[in-house]
């Protein structure tokens, strides 16, 4: 798959200190379960999926997700975060083949 690991993180533009904001993120990934067969050759397509997502804000872990192969391709995730001060949100996606994809986003506080 082209563009594998390309990510996009969305945060609200206007954030006040103490606000609880929704973080939305997308990453390009095939999320292959390992149960699907190639129709032409009859061979199983090897599993290739993200099994760990870690979100840190200013270095502190704020959310961690353990995923199974049942998460859809190009996985979307949304979660909430209480923002006390401006900082950098970093999301790391790790897959079962050792792939690691990183996305960062600055959260500005007004």
């Amino acid at each position: 798959m082209a563009n594998i690991g390309k990510s996009k993180i969305r945060v609200p533009r206007k954030v006040k200190a103490g606000d609880v904001v929704e973080i939305k993120a997308l990453v390009r990934h095939p999320m292959e379960t390992g149960l699907r067969k190639n129709k032409k050759t009859g061979k199983k397509i090897p599993a290739h999926y993200i099994n760990m997502v870690t979100a840190t804000f200013n270095g502190a872990t704020v959310m961690e997700a353990e995923w199974g192969a049942a998460v859809s391709a190009d996985p979307y995730i949304s979660f909430f975060l209480k923002v006390d001060k401006a900082g950098t949100l970093k999301i790391v996606w790790k897959d079962n083949k050792g792939g690691e994809f990183v996305g960062t986003k600055m959260i500005n506080v007004q």
Binding site: M63, G68, A70, V71, S72, Y76, S78, F79, F80, L81
Partner: peptide, 21 residues
């Protein structure tokens, strides 16, 4: 098991979303 999300008190709100198969 499709997904498990571990949150902290800093999450502010216990709500998550994903797309599953």
């Amino acid at each position: 098991m499709a997904a498990k999300f571990n949150l902290t008190a800093n999450s502010g709100k216990a709500q998550v979303a994903a797309r599953i198969k």
